[in-house]
Structures are given as C-alpha cells and as structure tokens.
Amino acid sequence: MASPGRRAAGGNSLLRAARSASLWFLLLTAALLLADGYLIFMVAPTDAVLGDVQRIFYIHVPISIISFLGFFVCAVAGIAYLIRRSERWDRLAHASAEVGVIFVTLALVTGVIWARPVWGVWWTWEPRLTTTLILWLIYVAYLMIRHYAPTPQQGRSWSAVVGIIGFIDVPIVYYSVQWWRSIHPVQVIGPEAADDALEPIISRILIFSLIAILMLACYLVMERMMLRAAEDNITELRRQQQDASPDY
C-alpha cells in the first residue's frame, strides 16, 4: 500500500494537471461568454412588445435548462454511487447538485426580475414557479443532509437517495406549463417546444447562450470536484497519520 505522503504527492500531480486543464477551459469559457454578451446586447432583436427586458430570456432559459441537467447528472451519479460505492461518483453527484442549486437559484431570481415589469408582480404561486421553488428546496435539503448526517458515509447514501427521488420534480417543472395552463410562457426548448416557437436569429443566439453557460457549469463542476478531491486527500492523510502514530 502506498504511504500517505506518496499518495498525497500522486494526488498533487493529478491536481496540478487538472488545474492546468481547468485554466484553459476557463479561458475558452470566458471567450464564449464575452461573445454571448455581444450577441445578447448587440445582435438580438429588441422585443416589439416587452422591450429590452426580454433579453433576460437569453440567460434565464439556459440557466434553467442547465440546472435540470445538473440534477440529472446528480441522480445518475447517485445511482452509480449506490451500486459501486465509489468516491468519484459521489464527488460528481455532490458537485452537480451544488452547481444545480446555484443555477436554479439564479433561474428563480432572474425569473422574478423579469416577472415584475412583465406580469406586474415579483412572485405569484403559479405552477411553474411553485414547482421550481420545490425543486430548489429538495436540492437544498440534499446539501443539508450531506452536511448534517451523523457520519459522512450515511450522508453520502442518504443524499444519493434524495438526489434520485428529487429528480422526479424536474419533468414536473418542465411540463407544468402544459398540465396546468398558467401565465408562464410555454417551452421554447425540448420535446414539447413548437418548431416555430422562436425566430431563427433568436433561436440561434439562445443555443449559443446555452453552450456558453453549459461550459461555465462544467467548469464550476470540475472546480468543485477538484476541491472535494483535495479535501478528501487531507482527511485521508490525517487519518493515516493518526493510525500510524496514535500520539500524533
């Protein structure tokens, strides 16, 4: 078995390589996000009815979709963790859930800011908003379970179950605008979106925005996973040091 020092050194070289890769990924993401900003503010047409505030749509929709994707990855990684009990799957589930919570929080906030001038209210208990708030609560609970569980092992297993069951709310959020017709606009992306839901230029900019923000989400998940890996290495090193020298 490798000594803790050697393990840490190996971990360090892996972390250095990952850090270098993540820096290049960050630069590419930053370039895409700058281009996205240019497209949103300089190229996208101003909405004839709602005016400039409709440009919020170009971040609100991608952020919402990517939060769904984050929770999907969390659920799949949670299933894999329960089957294989591998730390890597747990790290991926944890990172995806945390980034998913950041994104769904921003989806709610940007939606609220858009709703005030368009609907005349900051918040209304309509189905899309309510189911999204429930989604937010489920995954905040996921993160709290990890933190407050009696042992880290129980936290991982319990949160994996919450992550899997919680994902049931994602299709409910997506289809809520059709199942309970309300004031929220219908889907513009995904299986239920009409082919002519958007003008081609708007559609293209939205897809570009989706790719740029997806890259940002991937970067954040990678950073979170690397942080967890470093934290796990520290815990393991401390444990082995204590085992080797009880007086340490």
Binding site: A48, D52, I56, T110, W114, R116
Partner: peptide, 13 residues
C-alpha cells in the same frame, strides 16, 4: 415604443 425597463435588465445580468 416598447417599454425599456433597463434597471430590471441590468439587475438580472
């Protein structure tokens, strides 16, 4: 002309 509501746009971004 459509309303601008620029403070809301700025706030969201």
């Amino acid at each position: 002309l459509p309303p601008q509501n620029l403070p809301f746009l700025f706030a969201a971004f």
